[in-house]
Every structure is written in C-alpha cells, then in structure tokens.
Computed example of a mutant assay.
Amino acid sequence: MHHNVFTNNPTVPIDVKDRSVSELMDGMLRIGFQGRKLAESVQAWNNMLREKDTTVLMGLSGAMVPAGMRRVISYLIRERMIDCLVSTGANLFHDSHEALGRKHYVGSHLANDEKLFEHGVDRIYDIFAVEKEFRTADNLIADFAEEIGEISCSSREFMYLLGKELVKRGAAEDSIVVSAYRHNVPIFVPALSDSSIGIGLTIARRRGLKLNIDQIKDVDEITQIVEKSGHTGVVYIGGGVPKNFIQQTEVVASILGMDVPGHEYAIQYTSDAPHWGGLSGCTFDEAVSWGKIAPQAKKVQVFVDATIALPIVAHALHEKVSGLKRNAPIFSWDGPKGLEIAYEE
C-alpha cells in the first residue's frame, strides 16, 4: 500500500460509550471539521495552563452573560484558567445586574416585540429582561460613582472598585466582577462608554460629577501586562473591541521598543467568518502579519456559537486541570515602576 507524508494519520471515527467530557474531547482529536477544532482548543488551553510563566488573557464579547455564561467565566477566573479579562461593558453590567439578585428570563425569538415594549421587556434574541430593573441598576452605578468621587482612573481600577462595592452589597462569588475582585484578576473595559455602565456614569456626569475613565491608561496598563509577562496566551470569545484591544498590545509594545514575540497561544470561538474582512472573523494567520500572534504560536480557531463551546470546553478543562498547581501571575499595580508581575512557584 502506497504511503506518503499526507497519509500518516488516519481518522478514528467517534464511538459512543460511557465517558467523561474530557475523554470525549480527546476522542474528537481524530475526527474532522469544527468538532476537531473544538477538541484542539481544549488541548491547546490545557497545554497553555501547564506552561511556565504564562499569562492568559481572555477577550469576552457578545451577550454572553444574558445567555447564561457568567458562572463559566467566573469559574475560569476563580480557578485561574485566565489571568486577565477584557470585556464589553454590557457583559459586566448584566453580570452586576444578576449579582444584585436580578434575573434574565428564558424567552422566545418569535415574541411580538411591540407587545414586549408595551410590557417593558427587552429582548436579546431568545432572552428577556425587565427594562425597569436595568434602569435601577443604571442609577445604582450613578450613585456608586458619586461615592467614589472625582477621580481619573483606568477601567481596570473602576471595575476593581465596582467589585468591592458588589461584595459590600452581598453579591455572590459566582459573579464575574466579584470573582475578579477577590482573585486579583484585572478586568479591562476598553469600550466602557458603550454600555449601561457608561449610561450610569453619564447620569452621574449630568449631576455634576467629574469622574473620568482614562482609556489611554487602559492601553498603557494592559500593554505593561504583556511586556512584563514571561509568555502570553489569548482566548477570544467572539471578536469585537476586546479581541483587538488584546491583539494591539503586541504592536504597542514593539513600537515602544520592547522585544515581544507575539502571543504564543491563541484560541478563538467565533461565529464570524474571515471572508467579510472583519476583525471578529479574521484568522490568526492574518494576525501574524501584524506581529500580533507569534508565527510558531499554537493557533486554534473554532467557528462555533460560544454558548455551545464554552460549557463543553470548561467542563473538559475542569476534568483535565483539576488539582494542577499552576504558576499563575500575581499582579501588583502600585510598585515604584508601575506594574510588577511575580509568578507563583
């Protein structure tokens, strides 16, 4: 039988039997299409967590919290499967909303939106929420901002203070904002103004408060994380601003004269496609041309709805990484030279 370099690795059709989620993922490494990509993403993430002196940054976009993903993200934070979160403001607003005991509701994408509007109900595809409750949260953020007073701070500093406030109000650990506050995981929100948190801060501004969220300080702080980390890996849920905000750190650092290799692990779960030319769907190969991703990086792009991928991947990692004592980075932000990073021994 004629063998060549292309036919060394036969597929192994997946069989059905009693097994754990991580064993299923291992079995899917020898099948095709996005099933294999999903399994490869688990393998890459697992390997990344075992690398020495590596900082894992996650980009979170899309309405993941209304869709029920907040406990998965807070688990990844608590277990230090991620070390830094860059999110849309909306996800963190919705997380704070639930942290204060309010809910999102199972709805239908076939509902009559005019009727929903009459009943004060907002729709996010097949999830419902109560507009009046959102407005209560907007005002709560405005009141909280007034308590902080007139400061200029990065979104990371603001989210830390918000985490502290939510703890004071009795919020549970399953909140993204609270778990990040408790476990020293920085949260950056580069488009904070484009969310209900921005709305709350605008209400405070109209009342005369001069609180300034310094977006350029955000760029500086997250670039310092990349400059001062041994290695970096990235995980993107969707694309959007969080993805590019993490990607551009490599460019900023190199312009500032730092010798950075590009992110060395890169995983993305996205439902966007590359051929429209947008950043959310663009491949990691394209990012290599910008110096954002290292040419030899382990790159896995999974074209999938993140609400399917995240629960499966998190369960597989839960099984694979349980008991692993990872040497996660410890950030201290007020050192004489700005950020200092030490890795746990």
Score class of each variant (00 low, 15 high):
Gln34Ile: 02
Leu110Gly: 02
Val178Lys: 03
Tyr75Gln: 12
Gly291Ile: 09
Arg19Ile: 05
Asn4Trp: 00
Gln247Trp: 00
Ser155Lys: 07
Phe117Met: 05
Ser193Asn: 08
Gly335His: 12
Tyr269Cys: 04
Gly257Pro: 10
Lys17Gln: 14
Pro295Cys: 04
Asp259Gly: 03
Phe245Asp: 08
Arg19Pro: 04
Ile151His: 14
Thr202Arg: 12
Ala294Cys: 06
Phe303His: 09
Gln215His: 10
Leu24Gly: 06
Trp276Met: 03
Phe303Ala: 00
Ser254Thr: 11
Leu49Asn: 13
Ser179Met: 11
Asn139Leu: 14
Asn184Ala: 10
Lys210Met: 06
Ala294His: 15
Val178Leu: 02
Gly281Ala: 04
Lys320Phe: 05
Gln248Gly: 01
Tyr343Cys: 12
Val288Asp: 10
His3Arg: 13
Gly120Arg: 01
Glu147Phe: 02
Ile237Cys: 14
Val302Asp: 02
Phe188His: 12
Ser271Lys: 01
Thr55Val: 14
Ile151Lys: 15
Glu23Lys: 14
Leu57Ser: 05
Thr54Ile: 15
Gly59Pro: 06
Glu227Trp: 01
Glu221Asp: 15
Gln301His: 07
Arg207Gln: 08
Val302Arg: 04
Glu344Thr: 13
Ile77Leu: 10
Ser195Lys: 07
Arg102Pro: 00
Lys320Val: 04
Val65Tyr: 07
Leu49Phe: 01
Ala191Lys: 02
Ser96Thr: 15
Val235Pro: 12
Gly262Asn: 02
Arg156Ile: 01
Gly239Glu: 12
Asp53Ser: 13
Val56Gln: 00
Ala142Tyr: 08
Tyr343Ala: 12
Thr232Gln: 09
Pro10Cys: 05
Gly68Phe: 06
Glu345Met: 05
Pro13Met: 05
Glu150Asp: 12
His109Cys: 02
Ser74Phe: 03
Asp218Gln: 05
Thr54Gln: 08
Val56Lys: 02
Val226Met: 13
Cys282Val: 10
Ile151Asp: 02
Ala99Gly: 08
Glu51Trp: 13
Pro261Leu: 05
Ala39Gln: 06
Ser74Met: 03
Lys320Tyr: 05
Gly338Val: 11
Ile293Val: 15
Leu110Asn: 10
Ala306Asp: 07
Val235Lys: 12
Lys37Ile: 00
Tyr236Asp: 12
Val42Arg: 04
Asp305Pro: 01
Val251Ile: 15
Glu173Arg: 10
Val72Pro: 00
Asn112Pro: 02
Ile293Lys: 11
Gly281Leu: 05
Ile216Thr: 14
Trp290Tyr: 13
Asp220Asn: 14
Asp334Gly: 05
Lys217Ile: 08
Asp143Ile: 09
Glu157Pro: 01
Val321His: 05
Lys164Thr: 03
Pro295Phe: 01
Arg205Pro: 00
Val12Gly: 00
Ile222Gln: 06
Asn112Phe: 06
Asn47Ser: 15
Ala180Pro: 07
Phe158Cys: 03
Arg50Gly: 09
Phe331Trp: 02
Val234Asp: 06
Tyr265Gln: 01
Asp194Gly: 07
Gly120Val: 01
